[in-house]
């Protein structure tokens, strides 16, 4: 038996909206410690890793480990039927072929349940090592979203360079070129409005803007985003989802063959 209840159901709605274009399907791996998902996009150049801890839910029970194969477009259709203020409960029997989603309105006067058909998905798990990065940048998630959206209208790829001057995002295309530089800025009173650059050594890497833009669909989940960069390694883009967990994106850099 698996059961997970979250009062703030809108978080689940936002999570699925953030992921569904990048990964069409994947396994929700549930265990006594929580719910995780690891999935690659169809071209395998980016990886999404979602962790929702058991103690982040209002109620959580999982008697045996299960991999529930989810089609995210279909899950999104069902979650669109939940109100933003609804409490959402996920339920499945052991070895079930459906996942039940129950939505309760805030004043308990409307209760609905939907069964999502589960899929059998073969997936391989990749080990992502904890490592020190050359540059780590924490910035407002809305700022990151604006930068990648603006640059996507100019070019296809972005060169991200981190130096002691700051972090520079550069692109070029048919209309011309664009450079946006962010400096370390801890003056805003609210921590979520600060930009914090932790530079161990200068680094510059090029990425496809289409994916970086796609990652910013997670903006509604967190006020800050963290970008981590090391030469020749994937960029690591992380959103903390309150006390519930995190969603992490990895994207391979563009390289000269």
């Amino acid at each position: 038996m698996f059961e997970a209840r979250i009062t703030q159901g809108s978080v689940l709605k936002k999570l699925v909206e953030a992921l569904k274009e990048l990964v069409t399907e994947g396994n929700f791996d549930v265990s006594s410690t929580g719910l995780t998902l690891q999935a690659m996009d169809s071209s395998h150049v980016c990886l999404v890793s979602l962790t929702l801890r058991d103690d982040g839910f209002d109620h959580y029970r999982c008697d045996r480990n299960m991999a529930m194969g989810i089609h995210f477009g279909n899950l999104s259709k069902i979650l669109k039927c939940a109100g933003n203020e609804d409490t959402i409960t996920l339920k499945a029997e052991d070895n079930a072929d459906t996942l039940t989603l129950m939505f309760e309105s805030a004043n308990q006067d409307r209760i609905s349940d939907f069964d999502l058909k589960l899929m059998s998905i073969e997936s391989e798990h990749l080990g992502i090592p904890d490592q020190d990065y050359s540059a780590e940048i924490k910035m407002p998630s809305a700022e990151y979203q604006r930068i990648v959206r603006d640059l996507t209208s100019i070019g296809d790829t972005v060169l991200i360079s981190a130096t002691k001057e700051g972090i520079k995002f550069s692109t070029s295309g048919d209309v011309g070129t664009a450079n946006i530089t962010l400096r370390h800025n801890t003056t805003p009173e609210k921590p979520e409005e600060q930009t914090i650059i932790d530079l161990k050594e200068p680094v510059a890497l090029t990425f496809a803007l289409r994916y970086l833009n796609n990652f910013s669909k997670a903006t509604p989940l967190a006020p800050q985003v963290k970008l981590s960069l090391t030469k020749d390694l994937p960029i690591f883009v992380e959103y903390q989802v309150g006390d519930l967990g995190n969603v992490r994106f990895f994207l391979a850099p563009k390289i000269d063959d």
Partner: peptide, 14 residues
């Protein structure tokens, strides 16, 4: 030419 490696070339399969 500019290319992109697969995620599996950066992270080992478990």
């Amino acid at each position: 030419a500019v290319g992109q490696k697969s995620m599996t070339s950066f992270f080992a399969k478990k």
